[in-house]
Every structure is written in structure tokens, then in C-alpha cells.
Write a protein that binds this DNA or RNA. Structure first.
Lengths: 319, 319
DNA sequence: AATCTTATTTGTCCAAGACAAAGCAGTTGA
DNA sequence: TCAACTGCTTTGTCTTGGACAAATAAGATT
């Protein structure tokens, strides 16, 4: 008669779920949920026998919708005052196709068909046909745009985006691994800083660097600044390369870069790229902003030129 | 004279880190940290100009030690009243070097020498010599223990651990990619849930599964629960496999698993493993706990047996 | 058009109190 | 001997309302 596990009953009955569960499901913090309730009157959860919040499924759904719109850049204040219907409408209609590029539609079609094997094959074939450089500079960005657009329009599920990212990353990793350049200069240390988890951009850079003879060490994502400093101090790193996605606040990126610049030896190069930095013409002293993928090759060439110059002035008088 | 950027001063000084950062680093909840301070007088963080907690690095280290002992089954009340020295002794004493295995010392030596190329070669050679299965089941765990142990003893820098993880992951990815089993059953969907970012365990599982003929789709790390549900709903997934590292709170893992179990179709298997779950005697209904890597092969065998049985009862009477 | 101010929005933190869920210890009954 | 029930203690999470820093928008300035 009695159910031994209260959680199961709670989940199966229509009463609602706890605030911790809502945090898990929506990604909105407990504090945020409470303060919204106080300020805007939504959500308005039921209460269980001992006064704890119980969120009905429909409110959770509503919250999830709001979260999605916030991620698109909308302000919470506006969204929380609107009725559910207006939100749904807004999500459907908003972006009228930014990069109208239907040459990448095949990737969406294959994703919708869950044709993972075919996706892998397609990626591999295009890579082989166009070469790594063109694949990274042209194909992957086009696909990224198409996927991002599809997600905004609700055409693509989140997990499909996950899957796409995973497959592309694997393809890039395999290529980099196959290149296996050893010991050649420059030695580049790649990573993203704390709170920045997007690896794809970093992998694209790594692929281009490796294709041009640089020797890369990737520390993966979210390396704290102090650890980066520590890593450089005890390795033979020539250049530190960081990636900042569009989600990363520009000011924070700049501060981080300046801090790093101050802490690193002057001989160590510091390159930074990613959507958070491109488009800003602001030059940060001592830091090379990589505006786009085409900028990597010249940057490498510059490094080699500078190195030759330094060596010459050091060892010979002139050559 | 005045520093324009408060972040720089804060970060470069040894002041401490915020409560949110401690939660991330230790896996202990904000509320828990505050209530410990109130009840036991530890931790006792500094305060910044506006009264917010600032945890010095040594206290965070202390907390991490406590967390580790709690995960071994000790009671918080006892641990928090003991001085640091007693704890360290306890940890050192209880498992008298768990895997007293100095055969893994080479990895530490190479890491200290920053000999990345040699590390890659060693990994690749051992993998080729022992086979993927033995490499994943024996070698990698031994290395992990050695690294974790070295880190606890301050022998290894954090970035060296980062680097090690990255290199091993690449090796595993390359192997999985090379296997490329297509379409065969079961179809396993692998991922970690939100707030769980440790991928290595997941990759090890994926390698073993792939080596035994399963067809894996990895969604990478940090997939929200609802997205997992969505992914299963529209794919031909037979089994969902999740990994929870030791830093992940056990209670949260259990709740997540129960929620998933309730939401997934009964025919879909749900496997879970990782340090957060092993060692717990508690059985969660409907969920297969993978206590260790050896448990994967039998689990796969069971799945095949069950499938045969179901098919037989469905199509024929007996065989 | 890019930067610097100022105003508003918005998320996170704090405090102490409360209490349920989990664990422990001792008792009872099969 | 082991399992189940009891009461007792420990322990983590939830509650409230206030406060304020960080993020963003809007306006001013070069």
C-alpha cells in the first residue's frame, strides 16, 4: 500500500517537484527561483505539508522556455511578465535566418535522421577532399552557423547539437592526432580559462596550427589562470593561445588577458581569439588578437620572422 | 597608484576564493559550507570588503580532504573536529597506498620532464602491446591512481594532471574512432549530467563497450536530464550509460538516476558508474550500478541474454 | 562609432531558524 | 543469528527578507 520511496510518489503524482529538482532540470539556481517568485510573482509553486516548494510540471515547462529565451539574449524582467502564449510565439518567430546558407542543410537532415554513421563518413570525406585547412576554415564554420541557426529556430534539439559537436570534435582530434608533428617550433599551449567550456573553437585552432607545423599541447577547457601561469613557467612554451566564446563577457576576457600578460615572461607570446574578441578593434597591448581563422597562418609566419631576427641579433651580427 | 581592476588584485593575492568556487571545487554545497562554519567552527573563511566569504587555498585543501574521507564512509561531525594532521594521517593510514604500485612511476617522471612526445609514444605502445581492454581495465586505472596519489602528496602540479588527462583521453578517442563498430547492438548513449564534467571515466567505458561490439553515441559532458530523455525518445537507444565522478554528491546522483528511470521507457536500460556510486551498498531499483570496469562485460552479456529471451517469448514459444 | 558615465536590472550571498532524511544504537521477536 | 522496529543524534537542505555586486542598458562625450 504505502510506497517506500517518497521521491517516486512525488514524481509520478501530479503534485510537483522540489526546488532542487527544478534547479537540475532548468539550470536556474535555487536562489534565482526564489527571488523571481518574490519579485515577479512567477513561478508560484505549491507547498507541501511542511511548507517546501512544489513546482507543478507546467510551471517547470514554462521556466524551461524562459531559460531558452534568456540564453538567446532576452531580459528576464520582460519575459517573466509575459504570459506563456506570448513566449511560445516569440521563440518560434524571432530570427529570420541570419546566414542564409542552404549548402549545409545536409547536416541537419542527417542529424534529424540520427544517421550517425553517415555523418561520420560525410565529415571524413569532406575533410579528405578539401584538406584539413579548408575543412576547418570553411566547412566547419558554415556547419556551425547552420546548426546554431537551426537551434535558435527550434528546428534542432539540444542533444542533436551536442551530438554534432561531439562528432566534429572527434573528427578534428583524429586529424590532429594523425598529423603528430613532433618537437618543431613554436610550442603552443592551448586552453580555455575557467567558466569557458567551449572546446570546438580551440580544436579548430589547434588543427590549423598543427597543419602549419606548430607543436601543440592542449590542456583542455577551464584551466584556471594561475594554472596556466604555472604550466608556462615549467614548460618550453613559446605561445599561449586562448579561446573565448561569444557567451564569455568581453570585459572579463580582457582582464584575464591582461593579468596573464603581466604574469607571463615577455618572450612568451599570447594569442587570443573567439567570438568574444572579434569585431572589437580595441588592441590590447602585448596580446595578439586572432580575429578569424585566416589570421593564424600570418601570425605563425610573424612568429618565425621575429624569432629569426632575434637569433640573428643574438648570435651573428647580420646575415 | 590605485589598481583599476579589482579582479587582478584579488586573483594574484593569496586572499582566497568565493563560496561558489569552493562548491565547484569540492562538491560540498554552499548551505553545507555555511552550516559547518556555524556548527563546528570550520571552515573559517576570511571576508572581503563587502562581507562575503573568501576561502584560503589551504582551507579548500582541507575541505577536499574531508570530502574524500566522508566519501569513504566517515561521519562529518568527527572529521570536522579533528585537526588537519590527524586527517592526513587517517587518509594515509587507512588505505596503505591503495594500489601500492610503483610500476606507474614512469608516467610521473615523464610528466615532470614535460616529455609529451614520449608520453604519447608510451601510451600508444602499451595500448598496442596489451590490447585495448587490458589497457583500459588495468593500465589506465593504475595510472590514474598514481596521478591522483601524486597530486594529493603535492608531487604533481594541477596542470600536469590536466595534461595527463588530455593525453590519455586523446589516446582513448583515437582507439574508439579506429574501432568504428557500426550499427551493431546494443546502442548505448553515453554522457554525464549537468555539473559533472569529468569525461575520462566515460571514455574508458566507451572504449570497453566499443571493444565488445556495442555501438556508442557519446553526447559529451553535462547533458541536462531532460535532454537525455529527449535524446532517448527520438533515437534507437537500448541503454543509457552515465558516469558520476567522486566530486558529484551521491544524493544528487541518486535523485537524477531515479528521475531518469521514471522518465525513460522500461525497455531502455540505465547503467551508472563512477566513484560517486561505487562502494555504496544501496541498490537503486531499475538501475544497473557498474561498480568497476570488469562489470561491463557481464552487463553486456546479460543484456544480450535478456534480449534473446524477450525475442523468443515474443516470436517462438521456446528454443 | 567607440569609449566613458550613470541608472537599472538581475543574480548571488548572508543570517539564523527550522526540520526531514539518514545514520546509529539498542531492543524485541522470529 | 538476523531482521525489523524503536528512539536518539547527526546532518543536509529549505525557509525568510534584506542587501549588494556584477551585468546590462541607456545616455553623454570625444
Amino acid at each position: 500500500m504505502d510506497n517506500a520511496n517518497p521521491e517516486i510518489t512525488a514524481a509520478s503524482s501530479t503534485a510537483g517537484i522540489s526546488i532542487a529538482a527544478v534547479e537540475r532540470d532548468t539550470g536556474l539556481g535555487k536562489d534565482t527561483l526564489r527571488v523571481w517568485e518574490r519579485r515577479y510573482g512567477f513561478p508560484q509553486p505549491l507547498r507541501d505539508a511542511c511548507g517546501e516548494r512544489l513546482y507543478p510540471a507546467e510551471q517547470v515547462e514554462h521556466l524551461r522556455l524562459i531559460k531558452r529565451l534568456i540564453d538567446q539574449g532576452q531580459r528576464p524582467g520582460k519575459l517573466l511578465r509575459k504570459p506563456l502564449a506570448a513566449l511560445a510565439e516569440q521563440l518560434a518567430g524571432s530570427p529570420p535566418t541570419i546566414g542564409a546558407d542552404d549548402t549545409a542543410d545536409w547536416v541537419v537532415a542527417l542529424l534529424k535522421n540520427r544517421d550517425v554513421d553517415r555523418l561520420r563518413t560525410e565529415f571524413a570525406q569532406r575533410l579528405a577532399r578539401d584538406g584539413l585547412e579548408r575543412f576547418v576554415i570553411e566547412t566547419v564554420p558554415a556547419l556551425n552557423r547552420r546548426i546554431g541557426d537551426g537551434w535558435m529556430r527550434g528546428e534542432i534539439e539540444i542533444f542533436e547539437e551536442h551530438l554534432y559537436t561531439e562528432l566534429i570534435q572527434n573528427q578534428l582530434r583524429a586529424s590532429i592526432y594523425a598529423l603528430g608533428s613532433r618537437g618543431s617550433r613554436p610550442h603552443v599551449l592551448l586552453t580555455t580559462v575557467k567558466d569557458e567550456e567551449h572546446l570546438l573553437g580551440l580544436l579548430m585552432v589547434e588543427a590549423l596550427l598543427a597543419a602549419n607545423g606548430a607543436w601543440c599541447i592542449s590542456l583542455g577547457a577551464q584551466t584556471p589562470v594561475t594554472d596556466i601561469i604555472g604550466a608556462v613557467r615549467c614548460t618550453t612554451t613559446d605561445i599561449v593561445a586562448l579561446s573565448f566564446s561569444g557567451a564569455y563577457p568581453w570585459r572579463k576576457a580582457r582582464d584575464t588577458l591582461l593579468e596573464l600578460r603581466a604574469a607571463l615572461p615577455e618572450t612568451t607570446g599570447l594569442w587570443a581569439g573567439g567570438a568574444a574578441l572579434t569585431g572589437r578593434r580595441r588592441v590590447i597591448p602585448g596580446i595578439r588578437i586572432i580575429d578569424n581563422l585566416h589570421a593564424i597562418e600570418p601570425a605563425l609566419a610573424d612568429w618565425h620572422a621575429m624569432r629569426r631576427a632575434t637569433q640573428n641579433s643574438g648570435h651573428c651580427t647580420e646575415l
